[in-house]
Amino acid sequence: MVDQILVGAAIGCLYALIAQGFALTFRTTHTMNFASGEIGAIGAFIAVGLAGAGALPAPVKLAVVAVVVALIGAALFAVLIRPFVTNDGHDARWLLVTVAMSLVAVDVLRNSQGTQHRPLGFAQLDGVFSLGFAQVPQQLALLAVVCLGLGVVIALVVTRTSLGVRMRAVAEDAETAGLVGIDSRRIGMLSYAIGSGAIAIGATLWTGYVGVFPDMGPLLLVPAFAGAVIGGLVSVWGALVGGILYGVADQLFTYWLGTAAGGVIGLLAVVAVLVLRPEGLFARRQEVKV
């Protein structure tokens, strides 16, 4: 069972990283990318393409993947999402656009790459990492370390640096932030770039374990949602904790009850958390102003 907890926590680190991307962009733009899973898939397929490309070391290939996908993320935000950024909480056009983006991406990936699983071809560790009392596949350990490291760095940047201060200023009030010279469009693009690049790295390492295939998006999106809502949607630290929590819970329920019942109960537990604490476990309730 300790093995199960560790495996769950490792995959949970990936969920956490994606959930953090939601929190990051939701803070700065009041939008989030429902196509995040497909962003990961695009990154993984670019990585497959790079696998054959000469003698570049694996970290460099991953960095190239991250940069390319970060640019894609920023461009998608600027072109497709930003036109629908408003203060109206009921205006969900951005959401529909990102959902549609994910469908277009899946469709194109299926048509061009086929639906079969492919090996990633690099950055793969086959061994098992032993802690004495428990064992984890090395690929998952790598995934956990990289995702958690990225997540912590991003969280520190957001909470501790002047860039983070500017992001928070935009999050509070984009218009006023604009008056003091903060370009909310650039901050938004940056948030999307960071989120997308991080997801690309995490998803690529994950596909080193499960293989690369076009339909991986929902497998990442739904657990990341679960992590984000548990974490409170606006907290970059909360998202990290929420993602890992959900990863562990999902793994344990699946271990005990099988994939069908276990997966369902993990998600129902998330809904139960929301009933009890709609603002999530780690975010403070916001006061309404009249």
Partner: peptide
């Protein structure tokens, strides 16, 4: 489950 939620949270829970 979603009564206190607005915007994307509702969409996320319905998706779940």
């Amino acid at each position: 489950a979603t009564t206190k939620m607005r915007g994307p949270q509702l969409a996320m829970v319905t998706l779940i």
